[in-house]
């Protein structure tokens, strides 16, 4: 009987120890789960904050860039939607040319800044209603290099891109452009694209000093300037996808009297 009782006591003690250990294990596992849950929740929250911050930065950048473009334009009395149209044309040309979506989107933001150098051109020259003298033309043409200098010191990829655009948007494919007179594919694709987008829009818009050209007249000029002013590949892209470009023009049409 004694032996039996001893055994029972021992087993009871084991049972008790076992229960204690398992309870502790269960508590630990529950705690671990809780820590994981807590961390997951926090991480998701922090991720949300990160995304919101990223969006904020991107929006700020877009706004700054757009405002810079608008400043360049407003100083030379361009109409309000010119910036938007040049942006859209540039992106479309970039995509058809084969740049990826991200680069095309960047160019869309950078190309409207092409004339930012005009902020440094004296009003008397910039807004002269009559034809420029040779001297004034030289001053006017410095806006490309001025823009390049203004934006070129930035380390931001977008502003670097914009500095290329500013520098090279008046270069011509045959080497007769300015400021450097570089030729063909020595002109960066960003410059070649913006040149076409800017000219297409300028010719098709009413200005203080001129009426908008008829489409046929623009198309004739573009065909003549294929390989001269403009990259032949971009001209082909333009005519192959003419409807897309015209629908952008319709979408951002200038309202009469709007500035």
């Amino acid at each position: 009987m004694d032996i039996e009782n001893k055994l029972v006591n021992e087993i009871a003690q084991l049972q008790h120890n076992f229960a204690e250990t398992t309870n502790k294990l269960i508590k630990d596992i529950k705690r671990q789960n809780k820590i994981l849950e807590q961390s997951d929740k926090r991480q998701r929250k922090e991720y949300d904050e990160l995304l919101a911050l990223k969006q904020e930065i991107e929006e700020t950048q877009r706004e700054v860039v757009f405002t810079m473009g608008a400043i360049g334009e407003s100083r030379s009395k361009e109409t309000g939607n010119h910036v938007k149209r040049v942006a859209e044309y540039s992106k479309l040309l970039a995509l058809f040319y084969g740049l990826d979506e991200q680069e095309a989107e960047m160019l869309k933001q950078a190309s409207p800044m092409h004339d930012i150098g005009k902020v440094a051109i004296p009003d008397a020259v910039l807004n002269k209603p009559a034809r420029f003298t040779n001297e004034e033309r030289v001053i006017m043409n410095t806006h490309a290099e001025l823009g390049f200098q203004m934006l070129g010191t930035s380390k931001r990829p977008l502003l670097k891109m914009a500095s290329i655009v500013a520098y090279e948007h008046h270069e011509k494919y045959d080497g007769t452009g300015y400021p450097r007179g570089i030729v063909g594919e020595d002109i960066h694709i960003y410059g070649r694209i913006t040149a076409l987008a800017d000219v297409f829009d300028a010719l098709g818009s009413d200005r203080v000093y001129k009426k908008a050209w008829e489409d046929e007249k623009i198309f004739t000029l573009f065909k003549e300037e294929r390989g001269r002013h403009f990259d032949p590949r971009l001209i082909d892209i333009f005519f192959d996808n003419l409807d897309a470009f015209l629908s952008i023009r319709d979408r951002y049409r200038d309202v009469a009297g709007q500035h």
């Binding site: 705690r31 820590i35 807590q38 926090r42």
Partner: peptide
């Protein structure tokens, strides 16, 4: 303000 999972364990 912010803490990682092992800090959470440490606080427990």
């Amino acid at each position: 303000v912010y803490f990682n999972s092992s800090s959470s364990k440490l606080f427990f």
